[in-house]
């Protein structure tokens, strides 16, 4: 262990790695998904993303002014929050609500806690939770992607309009209740991969997030532990359920591709501020997120559990970090 560390006097090699570079990489990683959203939901999607990004950046600037701190919008973290929040909103969301969400994300979930690095919860997910609590109906009204012909019958929930379509995960609930046959939903697996299903902006195409995630991994912006832990634990639970009762649960592949699983694994759970720092901690965190997502999807009342899974594990991350403290080089210090 000691031999790997070289202690030397200056000059040191400096790295260009800064918050700005990391966030820039995340944005590049999100680009395929943004493009995909634009293809599936047309201008509407881009407008939602634009509104979220602009209002996040403006809120951050205003907060900095109020707190008399140097402007921190240059580190691009507000832009990333805006894009991720937009990705977790349904395309038909009114712009005013997107603005409320963005302001909540930056002002309450991030700046009120002390700004980037001090926030406990992922700002985009906290804001989405607030929106889901406040505007339940609007947050669960899914438009059909424009690239889809009306090949699937719409199941209309009791009090939503008829031009909407349930997401594969909402269908999966119907399967569990025996209202629809599982194979019918499983046919949507390729749709979930290419992007032919209803959902939030970032819930339609699995492929876009796989490309983006691969980019982040290659650039070493994120390490592979959290995505692997999330996807493995979720996959194992989905597979177990499916093997036990194939007619009662949907294809595990659809669980991994559908909903917010991939954006969560690569972009949300890997948020460096709200996830643990050590490798062991990352595994615990990732497994927690993946298992909670599947628990909520299979056992809970909600069709999708990414938001709550991430928020719950965020609140545990300081504890996980404490539990997985690294031993400093040279052994445990004698502290009384």
């Amino acid at each position: 262990m000691l031999s790997k560390i070289t202690v030397s006097p200056a000059p040191h090699v400096s790295s260009k790695l800064s918050t700005r570079v990391v966030m820039g990489d995340v944005l590049i990683g999100l680009l395929p998904a943004v493009i995909a959203a634009g293809v599936f939901f047309r201008v509407r999607a881009l407008a939602v993303i634009g509104v979220c990004v602009v209002s996040c950046v403006v809120s951050e600037w205003v907060c900095n002014r109020i707190r008399r701190r140097p402007t921190s919008i240059g580190d691009l973290s507000a832009v990333v929050t805006g894009v991720i929040l937009a990705m977790s909103l349904p395309p038909a969301i009114p712009f005013s609500i997107a603005v409320i969400g963005s302001v909540f994300a930056i002002v309450i979930a991030k700046m009120a806690f002390g700004g980037l690095g001090s926030n406990i919860f992922n700002p985009a997910m906290a804001a989405r939770a607030f929106l889901a609590a406040s505007f339940g109906t609007l947050m669960t009204t899914w438009t059909v992607p424009s690239t889809v012909d009306a090949l699937m019958p719409t199941i209309s929930a009791a009090n939503t309009s008829a031009t909407t379509q349930a997401t594969p995960l909402a269908w999966s609930k119907a399967v569990q209740k025996g209202q629809v046959e599982a194979h019918y939903i499983n046919e949507q697996t390729s749709g979930a991969f290419w992007g032919k299903v209803g959902g939030c902006l970032g819930e339609t195409s699995g492929l876009a997030f796989l490309i983006g995630g691969a980019y982040l991994l290659i650039r070493r912006t994120i390490t592979w532990h959290i995505p692997a832990a999330v996807l493995l634990s979720a996959g194992v639970i989905a597979l177990t359920a499916w093997l036990i009762k194939p007619e009662g649960f949907i294809n595990p592949l659809l669980h991994l591709l559908g909903g917010g699983m991939l954006i969560c694994a690569f972009f949300i759970a890997t948020d460096p501020v709200t996830a643990p720092l050590t490798t062991k901690g990352m595994w615990i965190f990732g497994i927690g997120v993946g298992s909670l997502i599947m628990l909520i999807r299979i056992v809970g009342e909600y069709p999708e559990g990414v938001m709550y899974a991430v928020l719950i594990m965020n609140s545990l991350s300081p504890l996980i970090d404490r539990f997985c403290k690294l031993t400093p080089a040279g052994g445990t210090p004698h502290v009384k």
Binding site: I97, I100, A112, F130, L131, A133, S134
Partner: peptide, 22 residues
């Protein structure tokens, strides 16, 4: 105006009180 149901829930109480105290 679209009502923000969240403000009627406990989260609304904590957020509003926090902002007022600030």
């Amino acid at each position: 105006f679209t009502p923000w149901a969240g403000m009627g829930m406990p989260v609304g109480a904590f957020v509003t009180l926090g902002l007022i105290l600030a």
